[in-house]
């Protein structure tokens, strides 16, 4: 009886509806606990050495903040002549107009550049050299095959002579050669040639004394 009274007193101290949602909250805690075991860090990663370099980066940023606080950032100490920016636009526009005029003048001076369409035969150096190489190869191939196809000239006269010699007996050939060689050793001198030689090389007295 006393215990039941104590419990009733204790329950009346809890927030309204506390026990209605308690079981659901306990169930969720158990679920999250199990989840943490499987997915400890949420799957995110950082670049290598990130946390080692982070203090340096933060200190650098603090330094820059101090630097900015010490003076003008945009101009950083640089100044311009008085009224510079107020005249800058008009000077730039004048430059642009000069450029336009120059381009227009060039177009007037050289109208043919636009009128005549020039078609380049060789679009690139590679095409030019490739064409030349092909022409040389084809010429060389043609010349080679032309030489191969040309028939050898046969000397029928020589062949006929060789056949005749083959038919003649060899003893006859030997006697003919020996006779020819003797004639060569004793050349026949014409009488007229002999007379001329004597008259040229000897005087009349020498000739008369010999006679």
């Amino acid at each position: 009886m006393e215990n039941k009274l104590e419990n009733e007193e204790w329950m009346s101290g809890a927030p309204e509806g506390y026990f209605d949602s308690l079981s659901e909250r306990i169930r969720q805690s158990v679920f999250l606990d199990a989840l943490r075991d499987k997915v400890a860090e949420g799957g995110f990663i950082t670049p290598d050495n990130y946390f080692e370099s982070l203090p340096g980066v933060i200190n650098g940023n603090l330094f820059l903040e101090q630097l900015k606080g010490s003076g003008s950032v945009e101009t950083a100490g640089f100044i311009t002549p008085e009224g510079y920016f107020s005249s800058l636009s008009s000077r730039i526009v004048a430059q642009v107009q000069n450029v336009d005029l120059d381009e227009a003048a060039m177009a007037v001076q050289a109208p043919s550049k636009h009128a005549d369409k020039i078609v380049r035969l060789w679009h690139s150096s590679f095409l030019k050299y490739a064409s030349a190489a092909c022409f040389i190869l084809l010429s060389a191939a043609g010349l080679y095959f032309y030489q191969q196809k040309t028939e050898p000239v046969v000397n029928y006269a020589e062949l006929a002579n060789e056949q005749m010699l083959y038919d003649i007996d060899e003893h006859v050939i030997i006697e003919h050669i020996q006779a020819a060689s003797m004639e060569e050793e004793q050349p026949v001198v014409a009488a007229a040639d002999l007379e001329n030689y004597i008259l040229t090389n000897y005087s009349q007295n020498d000739i008369a004394s010999d006679l």
């Binding site: 945009e74 101009t75 640089f78 311009t80 920016f85 800058l88 730039i92 430059q95 642009v96 450029v99």
Partner: peptide, 28 residues
């Protein structure tokens, strides 16, 4: 944009006259 571009160029080339020449070339 002329002022922003001017200061960008000026901080690189330092000299005002050089920056002046360059900014005109840029906008042309």
């Amino acid at each position: 944009y002329q002022q922003k571009i001017y200061w960008h160029i000026r901080r690189l080339v330092i000299d005002h006259d050089d920056a002046d020449d360059l900014i005109q070339e840029v906008f042309v």
